[in-house]
Design a protein around this nucleic acid. Structure first.
Lengths: 303, 303
DNA sequence: CAATCTCATAAATATTATTAATGACCTTTT
DNA sequence: AAAAGGTCATTAATAATATTTATGAGATTG
């Protein structure tokens, strides 16, 4: 079977007009008629009913079924082209969210340089959400991803690197800063919070705590940047929630506190690549180094 | 592009021998050579390296990439054929695990009969695990599934019907039967348990409790059938874990007890069909009836 | 070194896709 | 009611593509 017929058919489903489809593909109209006839013979079914009376052709149910498969086949072929095209380039198309890049990658930069991989990285810095899409579209080949829940997607291979807790972040001058006890989120209903703008995972976790506890503290400000976020906390404009590792010994005037009733959600750090993707040697090396990365016991030396 | 070329290529990857592939497809050997040449031109890459010296042809990395995509395209085409073939039949290919069928379906049988759907059901009774596979292979089109964790699979559409807790099941003569308090699994290390044989979900939940608590009670017997299971419990041979609904007022001499430290896992009842599958009218009706099914408040009348 | 296996090449042939020309069917316009 | 115009089917001719036949080259084996 020729995939061109599927292309014709797919467009026909969208346009429902043989003449128009023929023009789009710069072929004569009978070409489309014949292509459909071939498919109808191949699958032994009527795919489209021609209705001259109401001048409205209808796709049959089996036509719709084939349409869905055509879309998937087109996607796979496009992906094959993208992957094979990218194979000609030595670079590793690697997606890295800024948070993970700044928190956990410093400890492996040396090793990457040593293995001659650093200069082969074609880094795409973007949010985890966007990276997952780019990964599935074949625009990148490997990505580090931060997610609240483990991602279980049969299209993607996952290597879980580690899990980090979220912590409550307050200014040194905030009353809670004195406490050494874990804080119960339900006691924070009167607090003012700093929120995250954009697709940050931190925005989601705040919402989840609200959904989970029913407590809805006021969010007085939203920022798209972690260092601005910290500044607002430091100035005691409000308190916030961050991956604990964001706060280190050099973050003066900020205190991080454990949260007592944690969600089943944590900050999960994983490496993904497409299922069925064949890793380049360098990509294999990169993965081996990243897998050794210790997310859960990061050394303070790196700050 | 002709999918036949992909068929030839896929077989060539598996056999690594042009002559053999030609024989398998009953074509002449140059046919294979030309097909590969066409693909190499289409994707502008070398797919296989011919090594006469070590008499061992090697698939290139791009060849492996195309191989993976070929597999997926073949699967999609096969699925299209299966779905379109099944469309000619009026029956609904529906998978139902015995547990869900006996516990929750009695309440909708009347409605199904009323809607003339009951006699259109081509029921496949099997375990949830097997049903999920049959669903993905296109051997059935809709399935009710019981799972410990919500299933999140982009290939499948899911309608969550409800969640039921697991309970501890003991004989009336067992000391715990007197207790009205929820039981802590960690207090059961000295108890003898009845286990499940086969792919039952109940076998998994037992293992999960063991993994979760570190407590490893003795499993003295395994049965593949729920009524045998109940008999063993009733005879006080051991105690067990079941979906609470399995025990009703007519189950004399058996007591079900809440479990204190529940896992995040429960018995989730959902309806699945393939993403991209186009429901028949009857299938749509079936889904509407099933969606109204109240899993979480089943009436005792049905026993 | 002949026999054999494997794959490539090229020309001939077979198959398949596309086009051009035309007609049927229906709606809209005059 | 007839003409004009749009849409799709049909058919024969043509173009494009796939396959085969025949042959040769490179390597191994006995």
């Amino acid at each position: 079977m020729n995939t061109r017929d599927l292309d014709y058919f797919k467009k026909l489903v969208e346009k429902k007009n043989f003449t128009e489809v023929a023009e789009i593909f710069h072929v004569s109209q009978p070409t489309i008629t014949q292509a459909i006839r071939r498919l109808e013979k191949e699958f032994d079914t009527k795919l489209i009913t021609i209705d001259r009376v109401h001048q409205k052709n209808e796709i049959t149910r089996t036509g719709k079924l084939l349409f869905e498969k055509s879309k998937r086949i087109q996607k796979d072929l496009a992906l094959a082209h993208k992957e094979i095209q990218a194979a000609k380039c030595q670079k590793i198309r690697f997606g890295l969210p800024p948070i993970i890049g700044s928190l956990y990658f410093p400890q492996v930069v040396g090793k990457l340089a040593q293995a001659n991989i650093l200069d082969k990285l074609n880094m795409i810095e973007s949010g985890s959400h966007s990276l997952l899409k780019q990964l599935q579209d074949g625009d990148i080949d490997i990505a580090a991803i931060g997610s609240l829940l483990p991602i279980n997607n049969p299209h993607l291979m996952a290597k879980h690197l580690g899990t980090r807790p979220f912590k409550l972040i307050v200014s040194k001058n905030h009353p809670l800063a004195k406490s050494s006890q874990p804080v119960d989120f339900r006691d924070l209903s009167e607090e003012k919070f700093i929120g995250f703008a954009g697709q940050f995972i931190h925005g989601q976790i705040m919402q989840d705590y609200i959904d989970h506890t029913g407590i809805k503290p006021e969010i007085i400000q939203r920022t798209p940047d972690i260092s601005w976020y910290k500044s607002l906390i430091r100035a005691n404009i409000g308190i916030g929630i961050l991956v604990g590792d964001e706060i280190n010994q050099y973050d003066h005037n900020i205190v991080s506190l454990d949260i007592k009733n944690p969600l089943p959600e944590n900050f999960n750090v994983s490496i993904f690549y497409r299922n069925g993707y064949v890793l380049k040697d360098d990509e294999q090396k990169l993965l081996e180094i990243l897998e050794k990365m210790d997310i859960e016991h990061i050394s303070k030396d790196h700050y």
